[in-house]
């Protein structure tokens, strides 16, 4: 099993949960702007703290791959897309509002 780029959980927990469960998070940015850096930092923190299973963060720079903006229907940046687990979730902004991010990622029920 390949090692995911970021993993904060214990081996014991992996065995308990389904082997298929993995989070794939895509962060679309346009160059190294303040917002994209903030978004990446925030995302990393949230993942470390709140995601219990394996996850992978893919950063896509639209300046390098402009075609992907069309293919993936991206308008705003930064945009975070939860590819897995389904359903696909879409969050925009620099992810500074942790509560909203958690709700958006289904990690917490909205109050």
């Amino acid at each position: 099993m390949p090692t995911p780029p970021k993993n904060n959980r214990k081996e014991r927990e992996v065995e308990e949960e389904s082997a298929e469960e993995i989070w794939i998070l895509r962060l679309y940015v346009a160059g190294q702007t303040q917002n994209s850096l903030t978004a990446f930092d925030n995302l990393k923190k949230i993942c470390e703290k709140h995601i219990d299973c394996r996850y992978r963060i893919e950063v896509i720079d639209l300046l390098k791959n402009p075609q992907l903006a069309k293919d993936h229907q991206i308008i705003a940046v930064p945009t975070l897309i939860r590819k897995l687990p389904t359903p696909v979730k879409k969050i925009i902004g620099n992810l500074s509002n942790t509560e909203k991010v958690l709700v958006g990622l289904d990690l917490r029920k909205a109050e």
């Binding site: 346009a30 639209l62 903006a69 069309k70 705003a76 925009i92």
Partner: peptide, 16 residues
């Protein structure tokens, strides 16, 4: 399907 959290811009649209 969109949740807004903090600042953003529409650079994606411009790039597209």
């Amino acid at each position: 399907e969109i949740e807004e959290t903090g600042e953003y811009d529409l650079e994606g649209l411009f790039i597209r």
